[in-house]
Simulated assay, not measured.
Amino acid sequence: MDQYRVFGNPIKHSRSPYIHQAFAKETGQELNYQSQLVELDAFEQDIKTFAQAGGKGGNVTVPFKEQALALCDQVSKRAALAGAVNTLSFRDGQILGDNTDGIGLVKDLLDHKVTLTGSRILLIGAGGAAKGVVLPLLEQAPQQLVIANRTLSKAEQICQQVSDNRLTCCTFERTKDYDFDVIINATSASLDGRLPAIPETVIAGVGVCYDMVYAKELTPFLVWAKQAGASKVIDGLGMLVAQAAESFNIWRGVMPSTDEVLCQLRADLD
């Protein structure tokens, strides 16, 4: 039976084994998918050991996504821009890397009937999570994509790498100079109960606010966005499932449905 893993530290919380086993059952695929705790200094060795033992592929979560990129013989364009890999494939003695986070985000937004084409989008943050979604968002033909970050130089670096006239950047404070239809929080602030330091006036009247983080209750960012006047708020659980579906498709050549798995995960949170 084909073997797959998700590698991370910590890893106990990972929902990937449940998601991928559900995908396998739905699509009639024979595979075994498990989680593996990796010691902080053992990532490269653990990946190579798994590949040499016949493993077919793996997902990578914190804190190893950047190390995964360095391990790969080939990487996708979106992974190269992200500077991070979350999907590994082992073929013919080579390690192939991809980043499915942006595809997952876009699918979840579209599943929620969010219009991206022609929209003015604000992406908050310029770390790995933000880098991973820039190209897939631009592929949806927005009117404008603005990256806002506390340290402007990090956002500027992404703009220079991509070189697209629809893409620009600014500090958190300067977001007040723009009007947005969609705001996406790609920072980890909600994990710590914090808010990104953008002016509250930027939220008022915005159609959609999205947080890549998810929880049982609305995240602090989404609570704030709703109070500030956002018409629709969405958390990142659907992104998690959709990026997993893209990984599954890369490995198995079949795209699973995400609806049933997402409903079950949402119920498990309640």
Rank of each mutant, 00 (worst) to 15 (best):
G8V: 05
I11F: 13
K12H: 13
K12T: 15
S14W: 01
R15I: 06
R15P: 00
E39K: 11
L40R: 15
F43N: 04
E44M: 05
F50I: 02
G54Y: 08
K56R: 14
E66S: 11
Q67D: 15
V85R: 01
V85Y: 02
V85T: 06
V85N: 00
N86T: 03
D98R: 01
G104C: 12
L105I: 09
K107T: 13
K107Q: 14
L116G: 02
I124L: 11
I124S: 03
G127S: 11
G128T: 14
G128Q: 06
A129C: 08
V134Q: 09
L135E: 08
P136R: 07
P136H: 09
P136E: 11
P136A: 12
L137V: 10
L137I: 09
Q140W: 04
Q144R: 13
E156N: 09
D164L: 02
R166F: 03
C169N: 10
R174K: 13
I184W: 01
A186E: 10
A189Y: 15
D192E: 04
D192R: 15
R194N: 14
R194E: 14
P199G: 10
V206C: 14
A215T: 12
T219S: 15
L222R: 14
M239A: 08
M239K: 02
V241H: 11
A242G: 08
A242I: 10
Q243P: 08
A244P: 15
A245P: 05
S247P: 11
N249C: 15
R252D: 07
G253T: 13
S257E: 12
L265E: 07
L269P: 07
